[in-house]
Design a protein around this nucleic acid. Structure first.
Length: 922
DNA sequence: AATGTAACGTA
DNA sequence: CGTACGTTACATTG
């Protein structure tokens, strides 16, 4: 839902107006909204399936209405505001005419209840809500409009009912939604006149003649707006038209005469009441401050994230200062030149909040500001480009002292930023980003302002929100402001520690944070800082080679079809394949039919068309070239590539690698493997060493399931897939054919992903029935695996989460979804997460062990990369044997300390060495 | 310019 | 109709 919601937020963002709202005027401006009509519009404008809370409450109308309101408040800057609702279905109009609005379908189920939510939301915004039995919302609006106009107020009426056009005047504008609720047409007297050829007061005359389908009021057949306007002008209003009906010639006149009663009734019904008795007048509707706490709670319940930001971003500055009350209370201390040391020493035993402004890219970071906050509401901030030497020294000593505890948000970035200024960062006791990740691993981002909202109900100004990487422009503004913003961040971090620390503890993740993720963060920082050496010359020659292949394949492809197309455009390819060449359709995708490699290969097998061959070769070559070009761009001045290992991205607990991604360097094809030759041992070191776990996920499955057969397989030391194959097919291990083995291998791995028999049949190009039989046979021999897989899903459904061997949780609310697709996806996630996540836990433990042991032994060799089940190290002269032993030991024993003792299966590690990543691989 | 989609590389 | 990622180019949108 989050995705759909943000899409909608963007779509709704601008209130388009034919002309800009006037601002800066001192005239009071009253905004009146027809609540029901706008909510209804919102309901139909936004797809309900994209808007629901995790509990299933539909929220599309609430979202659309609130979004619209936020835009109106922002753009129109009303001083007074009210929302009117219809109070039931019977009004004086339905009493007069039973069929009035009688064509309206009964309220759709998902709309029910949303009006009540909107009313509650309006209450938190302290917006007056009005309704009155027997009259419609528009009558209330009309009455208030008349009163406000007479009091000299400007009035804006927002309604989807055209009857309100009769209210338009020099100081009264109707905002009429044209598409959804995001675009409003500004109905001024001129706009009404331009559209209908009549002044606003005569619009209801026209509507009476033409009819109003939405109110179930039929008009005069054959009479449209043009004719109606002509008559009304000619006879000076509807009464004149009716009086002179006899004189109007032609079919239209005939028709009019036959429907005089209807027209009169229409006019009676579409006249809005301006004398409704109301408990309040316009003067009572002044905009008031929101009930911030209640609003936050409502937005929490509604799970509106982007909307919250927009609502609060909209507040005027004086209100904003108020809402950062906690931050405003922050005492930004001027310690005076050389005073930092004393300030820090007075807080020697305290874990302080630290914010570093700067750029956190590995090996090219820079820091230009720091702020430190204590737990008593005091903070200090320094501009590192202009810091006194004494303060600089005190800061450096404090930052680098492992015994002086500090808490940060995204400490690894700060580490790199400080490193760029020659400052070491040690003693990180808490990281709010890591903590939030452990609590909510499925989130994709953990911005500090978001966490402050979510856990502290505190709003950091969006300027303070700028992360370490993006603060550069801020230096242009007032330096004192910059310092305060940093201090606000530091204080937020400091305060988040208490709340998030509790959340982490509640989830049993404290050890995971302090003993695994936090120490690992430092290891990763050093790996990133080190980078891996690249043979640029070789990589450039590869680029040339791949480029040649790209050109050749493209030329061949063009020759076949007799024209040049963009082979990288799926759209153009579809044209060529399915229109020009008339090939059979492939699998359906959003934009037509897929042209992916599997489909092209299949097409080639069926048609043998040479274009496909060249196209596939082109795809291949272009991707290789892209990969190489990307890598070349990433090589730093030191001749090395410094990836960033992201520690808070993968919901299962894995690391990810970005900028560039070194976890997806090709290996499967020969051409791909050539790229790995470009990753080389750097100067001063003797070799690269790779170490990887064999079949770690299968081993974890064996351990977690306790399946005796699978455990025995691993303990036997035999080839896993042959062993399993022999049991499934009932033959001796030696008689398992390669075909049998590959089927077993595919199935074994597929199990950990929730593979279906259909999926297995696709992958192995066999019948579904055969795949299904294979799975049955498998589970007959390895029933523990099946019991485990179903059990893990059942448990997750009951508890709401899965857990790895180190207790890392993944919450999967969709396991109880009514939507089958979502539910089944969640089930596959549930059975995969403990396996993939436990493997991630284990290699993280191993990395800590390897790092600690290398340090303890005083070895120069160092870790460079982690690729999920593989570590790459750079080995110093004379250290190869010892390093290999350290790595083997630490990796193999990573599971020794898991809760409940060691794993039930051994962890097998294979090691290779060589001058390049390719040679070191095995 | 920013965003989404298709495609494809890895474990 | 198998999990977890990141990057790229193209196409569409503002």
């Amino acid at each position: 839902m989050a995705k759909g919601m943000s899409d909608m937020a963007d779509r709704l963002a601008p209130v388009s107006a034919d002309q800009p709202a006037t601002t800066g005027s001192t005239t009071p401006r009253l905004l009146l909204i027809d609540g029901h009509s706008m909510a209804y519009r919102a309901f139909y404008a936004l797809p309900v399936e994209n808007f629901a809370t995790s509990t299933g409450q539909p929220t599309n109308a609430v979202f659309g209405f609130t979004s619209m309101l936020a835009n109106l408040l922002r753009d129109e800057e009303p001083t007074h505001v009210a929302v009117a609702f219809d109070a039931g279905r019977t009004t004086f109009r339905t009493e007069r005419l039973e069929s009035y609005k009688g064509n309206r379908a009964s309220t759709p189920e998902p709309f029910r209840g949303q009006v009540d939510i909107i009313r509650a939301l309006l209450a938190t915004l302290h917006v007056q809500v009005l309704d009155k039995p027997g009259v419609e919302a528009d009558d209330i609006l009309a009455t208030l409009t008349a009163q406000a106009r007479d009091q000299g107020m400007e009035v804006l009426v927002c309604s989807g009912d055209r009857d309100t056009f009769q209210l338009v005047g020099p100081t009264v504008t109707v905002l009429y939604p044209v598409r959804g609720v995001s675009e409003m047409s500004r109905m001024t007297p001129d706009a009404v006149e331009a559209k209908y050829g009549l002044p606003p007061a005569r619009y209801p005359d026209l509507a009476a003649l033409v009819g109003e389908t939405s109110d179930n009021l039929p008009g005069v057949p054959g009479v449209g707006p043009k004719t109606a306007a002509k008559w009304i002008t000619q006879y000076d209003g509807l009464p004149g038209v009716l009086e002179n009906a006899e004189r109007i010639t032609g079919k239209a006149g005939e028709s009019l005469r036959a429907h005089l009663a209807q027209v009169e009734l229409n006019r009676e019904l579409n006249r809005l009441l301006v004398d409704v008795e109301l408990p309040v007048g316009p003067e009572d509707l002044a905009v008031r401050p929101w009930d911030r706490q209640a609003l936050h709670e409502m937005l929490d319940e509604l799970e509106f994230r982007t909307l919250r930001d927009r609502l609060f971003a909209m507040l005027p500055d004086e209100t904003r200062d108020e809402r950062v009350a906690t931050a405003a209370a922050l005492d930004l201390v001027q310690t005076g030149d050389g005073g930092l040391g004393a300030w820090l020493d007075a807080r020697a035993d305290e874990v302080l909040g630290l914010d570093v402004r700067g750029s956190g890219a590995p090996a090219r970071g820079d820091a230009w500001g720091v702020a430190i906050a204590d737990g008593a509401g005091q903070a200090v901030a320094y501009d590192l480009t202009a810091i006194e030497p004494a303060d600089d020294a005190a800061l450096a000593a404090w930052l680098g002292d492992p015994d002086r505890g500090k808490s940060l948000h995204a400490a690894k970035e700060a580490w790199h930023a400080l490193d760029g200024r020659g400052l070491a960062l040690r003693g990180v006791r808490f990281d709010t980003e890591l903590a939030a990740y452990l609590c909510q691993p499925d989130r994709r981002a953990y911005d500090l302002p978001d966490l402050a909202i979510g856990y502290l109900r505190r709003e950091l100004s969006s300027d303070a929100a700028t992360s370490a990487g993006q603060g550069a422009l801020d230096l242009e503004v007032d330096g004192a402001d910059e310092g305060r913003r940093a201090a606000v961040r530091a204080a937020a971090v400091r305060d988040l520690v208490d709340v998030l620390g509790g959340e982490v503890a509640d989830r049993g993740a404290t050890t995971l944070l302090t003993d695994l993720e936090l120490p690992l963060q430092d290891v990763l920082a050093r790996m990133e800082r080190t980078g891996i050496a690249i043979d640029r010359g070789y990589l450039s020659s590869l680029e040339q080679e791949f480029d040649g292949r790209v050109q050749g394949a493209a030329a061949d492809a063009y020759a076949v079809i007799g024209r040049e197309v963009n082979l990288g455009s799926p759209k153009q390819l579809q044209e060529v394949l399915f229109d020009q060449l008339g090939m059979p359709r492939t699998k359906r995708i959003k934009t037509g039919w897929t042209t992916d490699a599997a489909a092209l290969t299949d097409l080639f097998a069926r048609t043998g068309h040479p274009f496909l061959e060249h196209l596939l070769a082109h795809r291949d070559a272009i991707r290789l070239r892209q990969t190489v070009e990307g890598l070349l761009r990433s090589v730093g001045d030191d001749g090395r590539i410094h990836t960033t290992f992201q520690q808070t991205i993968a919901a299962t607990g894995r690391l990810s690698s970005a900028d560039p991604n070194l976890q997806n360097i090709p290996i499967r094809t020969e051409a791909g493997r050539q790229i790995r030759r470009a990753f080389v041992v750097g100067p001063g070191y003797s070799t690269l060493l790779t170490a990887d776990y064999s079949q770690i996920e299968m081993r974890i499955m064996a351990h977690l399931s306790g399946d005796e057969g699978l455990i025995a397989a691993f303990r036997s030391g035999e080839d896993l897939h042959s062993y399993v194959g022999s049991r499934v097919f009932g033959v001796a291990t030696g008689d398992v054919t390669p075909a049998m083995r590959s089927k077993i291998k595919a199935m074994s791995y597929g199990l950990a992903y929730g593979l279906s028999s259909y999926g297995l049949s696709q992958q192995l190009a066999i019948e579904v029935s055969e795949a299904s039989a294979l799975m049955t046979d498998y589970f007959e021999r390895f029933g523990g695996v099946r019991d485990y897989l179903t059990g893990v899903v059942d448990e997750a459904r009951a508890t709401g989460y899965t857990a790895t061997i180190l207790g890392r949780r993944r919450y999967l609310p969709d396991l109880t979804s009514d939507n089958r697709q979502r539910r089944e996806t969640a089930e596959r996630m549930a059975l995969n997460a403990p396996i993939q996540g436990s493997a991630a836990d284990l290699i993280k433990v191993a990395m800590l062990g390897v790092d600690a042991e290398l340090t303890r032994r005083g070895l120069r060799s160092r870790m460079l990369l982690q690729v999920h089940d593989e570590l790459v190290l750079e080995v110093a002269e004379g250290e190869r044997e010892e390093v290999e032993s350290v790595v083997r030991t630490q990796m193999a024993h990573a599971g020794d300390g898991v809760p409940g003792g060691a794993l039930d299966v051994p962890l097998d590690v294979s090691v290779g060495v060589g001058a390049s990543w390719h040679e070191a691989g095995h």
